[in-house]
């Protein structure tokens, strides 16, 4: 049973779900406002790199996290400019930014750290030790020693869920993504709302990158996000564009990933379990969900559509 629901598997699930959840939360915010941002992968990657870079240069963890988040916001700002102000194709802009992020971080990594790798002396995000859980079976091992970012993520999920569905600014943000014309008529600044949402998505994805580099790995390596931003988009869709749903989806995906490690080499009826196929679950579930075969996932009505206000 330990390979299925042991403390190790559950702890790994949380570790694998966290960066995906953060990217997914970014996706929820930006798409609820009506802007598709597939550059979340890139925002994550610059977050991962500039977190390490700033940690190396300043030796300060807060400065490192701030630098990473700012880098993510800057990349997202370029997307916002292209998508909102210039009404450029959001997918092309997002692809361009993903390639840019990959090229930029790998280039800098090569020029700055190629011979030595990123330094091992940088400050890392500390884990939160829950002493009172030390002797609790399963739970202690699962959540008793997780990164501070894991707990921050949980808080962000709750706050974002409340913000989007229980506050007036949240309602405004959603109205901009559902029916920008009507929102505009009611005096809501569509463009400004979308700008804030896209910038926030960059910050959240970058935090996911920080988690990867300054919490899990303790270093940066080229393309270390390795598609997690895209799995985040999948989690956003499978979680029906809500923060709580996105977290749930990320946990489901993370569990599949954790199993693909713990079930390695396990034989079922004499045949080696195809653990690699477990990793296809996020992608298959997402397509099935959007197609309406598994529940029904409906995107915000004006998602991905540029808005041109009347009378300009």
């Amino acid at each position: 049973m330990d390979v299925l629901i042991g403390a190790g598997v559950l702890a790994a699930t949380i570790r694998l779900a966290t960066p995906v959840a953060l990217a997914a939360l970014g996706g929820v915010v930006t798409e609820r406002s009506g802007v598709v941002n597939i550059a979340l992968e890139g925002c994550m990657l610059v977050g991962a790199f500039f977190g390490v870079f700033a940690a190396d240069r300043t030796g300060s963890l807060p400065a490192a996290i701030a630098a990473a988040v700012v880098a993510g916001i800057l990349l997202a700002a370029v997307h916002a400019l292209a998508a909102i102000t210039f009404r450029a194709d959001q997918i092309v802009s997002g692809m361009a930014l993903n390639i840019l992020a990959l090229g930029l971080t790998s280039y800098l990594d090569y020029q700055l750290y190629s011979t030595t790798g990123t330094p091992s002396t940088i400050p890392l995000v500390p884990n939160v030790h829950l002493g009172f859980l030390e002797n609790a079976p399963v739970l202690g091992g699962a959540i008793g020693d997780q990164s501070a970012i894991v707990w921050a993520t949980l808080a962000i999920v709750v706050l974002l869920q409340l913000f989007l569905f229980r506050t007036v600014p949240g309602l405004r943000l959603r109205s901009v993504g559902e029916h920008p014309r009507a929102a505009d008529t009611l005096g809501i600044d569509v463009r400004r709302t979308r700008y804030w949402a896209v910038l926030a998505s960059g910050a959240l994805a970058a935090l996911g990158g920080v988690y990867l580099s300054l919490s899990v790995a303790g270093s940066f390596s080229d393309n270390m996000t390795n598609g997690r931003g895209f799995i985040g988009l999948a989690a956003m869709i499978f979680g029906r564009w809500t923060p709580v749903g996105a977290l749930g989806a990320a946990l489901v995906f993370g569990y599949g990933d954790a199993l693909s490690v713990s079930l390695q080499g396990v034989k079922v009826a004499g045949v080696e379990f195809p653990v690699q196929l477990l990793s296809t679950i996020p992608y298959l579930l997402t397509v099935l969900a959007v197609a309406g075969f598994v529940g029904r996932s409906r995107m915000p009505a004006a998602d991905g559509q540029p808005y041109e206000s009347e009378g300009h």
Partner: peptide, 12 residues
Amino acid sequence: HLVEIVEALVLF
């Protein structure tokens, strides 16, 4: 990786 940066700029 300079090549990727140039490619991204072309796309942009």
